[in-house]
Amino acid sequence: MAMDVVLSAQGLTKTYGAGKDALQVLGGISFAVNRGEFVSVVGPSGCGKTTLLFAIAGLQGVTSGTVTFNGRPVTAPPKGVAVVFQDYSRSLFPWKNNRDNVAFGMARIQGLSAAQKRDKAQEMLDAVGLAGFADKYPWQLSGGMQQRVAIARGLASQSELLLLDEPLAAVDAQTRADMQDLLLDLAIRFKQTCVLVTHDVEEAVYMADRVVVLTRRPTVVDHEIVIELGKKRDQITTREDPRFLAARHDVMTSIRGQRAHAPASAA
């Protein structure tokens, strides 16, 4: 079975600033994402995960290297890629109710009437468990619920690729576990190809079919690891599974190992 590559990053480098203040964040990152896959990209805070995700999304240019989406180079946000941002409260629009915020995700989809978009938005809110909150406003919801609205907006556009930038970093532990399962369910249900960027090793392993492990700055891919746990995961049994523990050990060692090599001043 030939792999159907949706996204590929080749040798991405990114340097912010110039001269004395130059900061090389990405040091030549390459990896690929296949159709239907859930890929986690894990790396320590500040290693350039957001930079990488924005580059893939076409939101920010790179210094060198190329991103291709469906075989075409990405220079601007391509059709078929949706992004869920880390800063959910600022990524939703307070003057729109939740249904209209979700419908915003379909603003550029042709061939759907306004009524169809509204129906679709409602359907997506139902899918993320916010059926009764369509007429409420984002600021009337808790953080986790706001991020669910943002996820619904990302799904509503029926994009081939959904990019998630630490979507659960700011929610409490219980909500995070629930939302991990929600995201996994949705990914299966909508056959959604996903790239999740996170600093949380457990989350990266729990969610993914494959984990891309990053080094510290200037960041490159340390190694990749396939998680052979099947699509269905469970907060209790999966996390006790020896294969989960082995993968977690592997990723953790790699990330902590880098930390050990880091200068003494680093946290």
């Binding site: 939101l59 946000p77 995700g105 603003a107």
Partner: peptide, 20 residues
């Protein structure tokens, strides 16, 4: 952030100014 969201939704400049 508002501008990033607008760009990821593939809004044109004019659309972004009017709708965001």
């Amino acid at each position: 952030m508002a501008n990033l969201v607008a760009r990821s939704l593939r809004f044109s400049r004019l659309e972004t100014m009017l709708r965001i």
